[in-house]
Design a protein around this nucleic acid. Structure first.
Lengths: 118, 118
DNA sequence: TGCAATACATCGAACCACAAGGTATATTGT
DNA sequence: ACAATATACCTTGTGGTTCGATGTATTGCA
């Protein structure tokens, strides 16, 4: 089951968020995503292909992504793009991420009058 | 097989960061930390005792925390506080966290001119 | 011809966080 | 007096994600 409702380890699912976010801008293929993440984050985050491909397959299986084959220079590529369902998923994950970082910031900033802000 | 110190899963260690951060403000005992995290984050993050106690023991074993027993109302409590080594650890984790969220933000904000900023 | 890069993919191992359970005492409610 | 709840400590098994290694195949370059 790709759907995560059980055991929501609060820190997981970030690769999925990153991938959906990139594909939200433009269609991309797997290998390209691996490098885009590395470059855009100055190698702070370096997810491998072993992370990206399974996420891609999982999201497509859930109907969050759709794919199409293209042949370029005789080499096949599988381009992915987000479906409406994927867009919703992205919005959800994005919101969760914001909530999470805000929550953590509330503790890091710490201090006496720190009130959790919704 | 071999000792693994490289490549820490980039999302892990957040509970450790939170705990060190709280203890950096004032000494606390385990049960108190569990509740403090829940309250300060408006229940966005709710780590259980099964997360907190092992981290506490681990950090103490590494010399990042020190503890002292106190008996209050006939009930024993173990108060933890950060050592100089723990303070360094906190600074490191804190920096890593900032780098990470910055990196992710660079992707989420996305867009054409997004340059990873150190 | 060989090496690097491109592009896909899968698998086992590692690892963290979690839920669940266990012990024990103090307090509150009935 | 008794039960239930809250406090306070702790460990263990499980589960899901991520990682590194490995595999295949083609293209481009030296």
């Amino acid at each position: 089951m790709a759907l995560r409702e059980t055991n929501p380890n609060f820190m997981n699912g970030v690769p999925e968020l990153l991938i959906l976010s990139l594909l939200g801008e433009q269609e991309m293929y797997g290998y390209e995503i691996v490098q885009a993440i590395r470059q855009r984050t100055a190698a702070v985050i370096a997810v491998g292909e072993g992370v990206v491909y399974p996420v891609l397959h999982g999201l497509e299986g859930d109907g969050a992504l759709k794919s199409r084959r293209k042949t370029i220079n005789g080499r096949g590529r599988i381009y992915y793009s987000v479906t409406p369902r994927g867009a919703r998923r992205l919005a959800d994950l994005s919101q969760n991420w914001t909530n999470l970082t805000t929550a953590i910031q509330n503790i890091l900033i710490g201090g006496q009058n720190a009130q959790a802000v919704l």
